[in-house]
């Protein structure tokens, strides 16, 4: 992870750390006044992030404590990626980072400096749905639709990883994505069909 952290970002962070240290030795009155000062708070709270999401480059500042999930939803306004637990237990927030599936709630946005993220919004080719998306519709691989983006992102990766050689293997490697409506058998159908027909690149 460290290797991907750009020097520029580090220097910037160090600069702020110095400012923070300076403030710490300043008079208590100044610190107190500073607590509510948005500008100072923003200075300490945010660090720069360069990230590519669905083929689009973003260069902006984020709080280090912001998860990749909250960053995608609340700052990029891409609401297709869902929050189902925020603890990496349900898979609803699954996105691809450099082509691999991860739970975006377990990754801080700043850990993804220089990386390529694909969310559900980036899967289709314009109006043309990804084969996995089509297969989910055909096999009714969802009901409420909330876990669906995570299921589909996970399903695409599942095939790319080579983990879709049998129904049982799919069931095992898709068990990180909970579907409370219980569409599991249909999800397996969708993945097996997509696998059979080939072409799962994202």
């Amino acid at each position: 992870m460290d290797n991907n952290c750009k020097n520029e970002g580090r220097r910037d962070f160090l600069k702020k750390s110095t400012a923070l240290a300076a403030l710490a030795v300043a008079s208590p009155a100044l610190v107190k006044a500073g607590e509510n000062d948005e500008k100072i708070a923003a200075l300490f709270e945010k660090i720069p992030l360069n990230i590519e999401v669905n083929g689009k480059a973003f260069s902006l500042s984020v709080e280090p404590r912001t998860t990749l999930l909250d960053f995608i939803r609340e700052q990029l306004h891409l609401f297709g990626t869902k929050k189902g637990c925020d603890y990496g237990q349900c898979g609803a927030c699954t996105v691809h980072v450099d082509g691999e599936r991860i739970n975006s709630c377990l990754s801080l946005a700043v850990m993804n400096e220089g990386k390529k993220i694909t969310t559900i919004e980036g899967l289709a080719n314009g109006e043309e749905l990804h084969p996995m998306q089509k297969a989910f519709i055909k096999h009714d691989g969802f009901q409420c639709g909330y876990c669906t983006p995570g299921q589909i992102m996970s399903a695409v990766a599942c095939i790319n990883e080579g983990h879709a050689n049998s129904r049982d293997e799919v069931r095992e490697f898709m068990s990180g994505n909970i579907c409370r409506c219980g569409a599991y058998p249909n999800i397996v159908d969708a993945i097996m069909q997509t696998k059979k027909e080939g072409s799962t690149h994202d």
Partner: peptide
């Protein structure tokens, strides 16, 4: 018939209550 809201659900454009800007 297939679900009429299927495309919205598989593309992430279906809006749930925390997804209004």
């Amino acid at each position: 018939i297939d679900r009429v809201d299927g495309v919205q659900k598989v593309t992430g454009t279906a809006k749930y209550s925390a997804e209004y800007d």
